[in-house]
Amino acid sequence: MYDDGFPVYSVLHGPIEPVSLGDRAPVAEIRHNRFIRSANGKRTVYRTADGRGLVYRTRLSPGLASIVVLQPAEVRRAEQPDTWLTWRFLDDGVHGAWRLVLIGPDDVVQWVFGREMGIARSAGSDDDGDAPEWLAKGLKADSAYCITVIHDVDPDEALRRFGALDMEISTATWMQLRRRADFEDLDSEGMVVAAFALGPHTLLVEDGGHEAVDRPDLSRGTFAVSSFSSAEDAHRFLVSEDGEVLASFTYRLASLAEGADPTVLTEPLAEMGIGDIDEFDDDDDSLLDDVELLCQVAGVSPEIGDVTGPARGAILRRPDVRRRRFAYSA
Rank of each mutant, 00 (worst) to 15 (best):
G208N: 13
A39S: 10
E241L: 04
R322F: 11
R121W: 14
G305W: 11
C146F: 07
D3H: 14
T263I: 06
L139N: 04
W134K: 02
S61I: 02
M272C: 02
L316S: 07
T48S: 10
I119G: 12
W134D: 11
L135M: 10
E133D: 15
R178F: 00
F237T: 05
P26D: 01
S38K: 03
G309I: 03
S10P: 12
R76F: 14
A158I: 08
R323Y: 10
V68S: 10
Y46F: 15
R180S: 00
V297L: 07
V19P: 15
D185A: 09
R59M: 11
I119P: 12
M272Q: 05
G275I: 02
V192M: 06
V245D: 12
A65V: 04
V68N: 08
S122N: 12
L316A: 04
R215K: 03
G41F: 12
S143E: 14
E267G: 00
E292S: 05
S230G: 15
S219A: 11
R312G: 04
R161I: 13
S229R: 15
D283F: 07
R322L: 08
R24Y: 13
E79Q: 09
R43E: 07
F89Y: 14
D289W: 12
A327M: 03
S219E: 09
R57L: 15
P18T: 09
A260K: 11
D282I: 00
F183E: 13
L12E: 14
V149H: 09
D152W: 13
E74S: 00
G209R: 10
A28T: 01
A212S: 01
D127T: 03
R24P: 14
H235T: 13
V55D: 07
D126R: 10
V297E: 12
V68M: 06
S255A: 08
D214S: 09
G53C: 02
G305K: 02
A194C: 08
G163N: 12
L54I: 00
V101K: 03
F183A: 13
G118N: 02
G5Q: 02
K140P: 02
A73I: 02
V239F: 13
T171W: 07
D261T: 03
L186N: 04
D166M: 00
R324L: 10
D278L: 14
D207M: 06
T250A: 08
A28D: 06
R115V: 09
P7M: 06
